[in-house]
Design a protein around this nucleic acid. Structure first.
Lengths: 240, 240
DNA sequence: CGGACCATTGATAATTGTCAAAATTCGTGG
DNA sequence: CCACGAATTTTGACAATTATCAATGGTCCG
């Protein structure tokens, strides 16, 4: 967990600032000024970036790698709420109100973050009221995602849920190849199970079924080839 | 669905404005000014206050009565996301960004609402930037609720979910009586089932079980007496 | 009081979770 | 680059839970 303080040129040029919608109302100069305030941290796989119940002291932007955000359920399993990947960020609501973190964020692979402390962020908010509006928009869209997730987990048919998850992954992590769409899965089978609220083995079986039906093909544990997207959409209940 | 435009004295005195956290930074005079802009509508049981997919043109505050907010799942059932009762409000995120409504809001009983149009609200936001911060706080807390709901629905043990729901209702709709805590249920059995993502009959059975164990007693279809709150907490996984 | 609506109960089938074992994949070090 | 051990995934058998269907019983309202 090394920490560096330096002018964030790399970050500015390539990723974190420009990828974060809430900073889109800043002009060029201010982005550069802001970039100088940014602190970086790196995390190894399995390390915690934020822990449920602890105060969150900064806005965290994922510059590289991906993370899972989860809560523990009363029967001891983890319920995954979000997967945060490059360009995603979290902690913004805790910077304004003084709540503690509602979930734990854990690195799924080596992760680099850009961070802005609470006081820096509040200053920024003072100078740029538009940022508040951007945050509301972002929170609104994240809320819509959560509402969709809640809707989907409320569906009794688990086949639909699994297919729906794969479709989400296509748009987020999929690349078109000549054989089909390759998804680099952010989560393991167990992770997907903990997101969907079902048993690990059930995910295996559902994916196995899809493979038997020639809808997908398992490449490695971390990637899947989608052969028949239309069929996935049918099972998920989107088309037909 | 009658519509009235008049100075909202009743509303000001009793309910809607002061109950809404996002207006707490307004001073007395401005609240009075604002109250004059407010429009009222009444809805009969079963009428729609907002429909999923349609644009939401105003901030809606529930002055009287209660409503359910839901989405249709792909297998045709409704997944209830929220119950909005007196003092709750919705639509704030749609007033800033121009998204369409993510859910349908339907009156569960006769409902009176206070409404503020999009342009009125935007003006207000301009004069009181603090309101934006309040909205972020409110969205943050609503998001925490959703995250909690998602966590709870991901629990495999349905007994825990039912007990957890009853505990939530105790804090929101419960009154202490000498025999125990009386809950005026906002939802029917079917409604609870659609919130929990299980079959109507399953809710009946789980409640029947709790009644057999002398933990609750069913008074009418719309109210329940809680005899042993501690036991409910154990089943929900909170205590012990 | 009657009719519509809502809730309960029972029987059964389908689904999914659990446990255990085998197979596969992954990462590391030689 | 290969081989080995650890971790993950898959598979099978079985048990437990829950959905579904159908019928009955209650409750609420005019």
């Amino acid at each position: 967990m090394s920490e560096q303080k330096y002018s964030c040129n790399h970050c500015f040029d390539s990723l974190c600032m420009h990828k974060v919608p809430i900073f889109s109302s800043l002009n060029h100069e201010d982005i550069i000024k802001l970039a100088e305030l940014i602190t970086h941290k790196t995390y190894k796989k399995g390390e915690f970036i934020l822990r449920e119940g602890e105060p969150c002291e900064s806005l965290v932007i994922i510059q590289e790698g991906s993370t899972k955000a989860y809560k523990y359920t009363i029967d001891g399993r983890e319920q995954i709420l979000y997967v945060f990947s490059e360009g995603d960020f979290f902690g913004e609501q805790y910077l304004i109100s003084d709540q503690v973190a509602a979930f734990t964020v854990e690195a799924l692979e080596p992760v680099t973050t850009c961070m802005l402390t609470k006081s820096q962020f509040r200053q920024l908010l003072h100078g740029y009221p538009d940022i508040a509006v951007k945050i509301i928009e972002e929170l609104g869209s994240r809320m819509s995602r959560l509402e969709k997730a809640l809707q989907s987990i409320g569906v009794r048919n688990i086949d639909a849920r699994v297919s729906g998850l794969l479709l989400d992954y296509i748009t987020q992590y999929g690349t078109e190849e000549k054989e089909g769409i390759v998804i680099r899965l952010p989560l393991s089978r167990e992770g997907m199970a903990n997101y969907l609220g079902v048993a690990r083995e059930t995910v295996s079986r559902k994916l196995g079924q899809l493979e038997n039906d020639n809808i997908i093909r398992s490449i490695t544990n971390k990637s899947i080839l989608v052969l028949d997207r239309g069929e996935l959409e049918k099972i998920a209940g989107i088309s037909e």
